[in-house]
Structures are given as structure tokens and as C-alpha cells.
Design a protein around this nucleic acid. Structure first.
Length: 203
DNA sequence: GTTCTAGAAC
DNA sequence: GTTCTAGAAC
């Protein structure tokens, strides 16, 4: 007998062949992604570079330390060299990927990431991707919620720790939809996406 | 983080 | 009537 009623809901975003994931375990998904050969781009003794599983632009990579660092707040002063290395690797990878396409890019961290395990985003600024769907997606990459890698490194160097709470991250996510290039405000995501492609120069 | 969908917004 | 968003996921 089937036990599922029609229309019954179940936790999503973690299925795909393996055993049923327990509630809340999706936040550890980067650990699996780091090991996934389909996502892995390169690794060295300190970091692993992967393609974001749901890229929010044409080129979107994550640089993760092999060392298990849960979040920005866990950073200690002696992690500065690691952050510099992550930045250098991320910059090389994203430049290489973009090639002659002429897209700009940014390197940075989300103030309050959903996924555990420190990860540096290296993302091209076209934001031309079917996985970019929600206001939270948009604002997490185009508002102060996205903290530049250099700013994180500076803060760690000067303060000995990293604290992004002064940016009011939760409020950033609720800001109106605004084009990151010309600052025009759009009323919904489809209109925003239609607008931003006009800023991508054709190659 | 994503998926799904009820009901708001148009 | 259709599009779009926001919140639950047992």
C-alpha cells in the first residue's frame, strides 16, 4: 500500500537517490558538493573550487577551505593568509572562465549564508541565469548583504575578527528590486531580469 | 539552499 | 483569469 496521500508534502531539496535527508540537513550540502566530481573545478592543499550547483550568473564559483570553518564569525586572525589564498584562487578561476567575454565579476561573502561551511563567491555580474529567481537571490548578490572579499580581509586584519551584523543583513534582503548597473527600480523579478540583460554587451 | 503552492497582486 | 511572490517543509 502506498503511504503517501495525494498532495502530501515532504521535505524537498535533498532528494535525488540517496537516503532521505533528515530535517535541516540541507544546510550541510556544501560538504557533498565539495566532493562531487561534476562540480569540482580544482583543488590544492588548502582549498577546493566548485561550480555553484544553482549558478546565479553565467559564471559562478565557490571557493571553500578544506579546513572546516563554519562561518565568517569563526574566523581568527591567523586565517588571513587563507582568505588571501582563497581570493587569489577565486580571482584566477573567474577571470579564466570569463575569458574575452568582457563581463565584470565580484568576489565576496554573504553576510548570513544559508549553507554552512565558509565559502567565497566568485560571480560574473551579468546575473543571466535561470536559477536566479527570487528577491532574496537578487539582493543577496547586489546589496550590502554581499560583502566584498577585500572588505572581509580588511576587517579581519584590523579588528582580528569579522562581524557583518552592522549591515543589517535581514533588511538588505527586503530592499526593492534595483538594477545593479543603472540603479533603476523594477517592480518584479521577471521585469528585473528582462531589464538587466540589456546591460550585457554582446560579444 | 530548493521546491511547491496558496493566495496576493495584477 | 493569469502572474508572481512568500512561507512551510511533521
Amino acid at each position: 500500500m502506498a503511504t503517501a496521500k495525494p498532495g502530501q508534502k515532504r521535505p524537498l531539496g535533498s532528494s535525488g537517490g540517496g537516503p532521505p535527508a533528515k530535517k535541516g540537513f540541507w544546510s550541510l550540502g556544501l560538504l557533498d558538493s565539495m566532493k562531487d566530481p561534476n562540480l569540482q573545478v580544482e583543488k590544492d592543499d588548502k582549498v577546493v573550487v566548485i561550480k555553484d550547483k544553482y549558478p546565479k550568473a553565467r559564471y559562478h564559483y565557490l571557493v571553500l577551505p578544506k579546513e572546516n570553518i563554519s562561518k565568517l564569525k569563526a574566523l581568527q586572525p591567523d586565517h588571513l593568509e587563507l582568505l588571501k589564498h582563497m581570493h587569489e584562487v577565486g580571482e584566477r578561476i573567474i577571470k579564466e572562465a570569463i575569458g574575452e567575454e568582457g563581463l565584470s565579476y565580484r568576489l565576496g561573502y554573504h553576510a548570513v549564508p544559508s549553507m554552512s561551511h565558509l565559502h567565497l563567491h566568485a560571480i560574473s555580474q551579468d546575473f543571466d541565469s535561470p536559477s536566479l529567481k527570487t528577491k532574496k537571490h537578487w539582493n543577496s548578490f547586489t546589496s550590502a548583504y554581499f560583502v566584498d572579499s577585500k572588505e572581509v580581509m580588511d576587517q579581519l586584519e584590523k579588528e582580528g575578527k569579522v562581524d557583518t551584523s552592522a549591515k543589517n543583513p535581514e533588511a538588505q534582503l527586503k530592499l526593492p528590486l534595483r538594477c545593479h548597473v543603472c540603479k533603476k527600480e523594477l517592480t518584479n523579478m521577471p521585469k528585473l531580469k528582462e531589464h538587466i540583460v540589456t546591460h550585457i554587451k554582446k560579444s
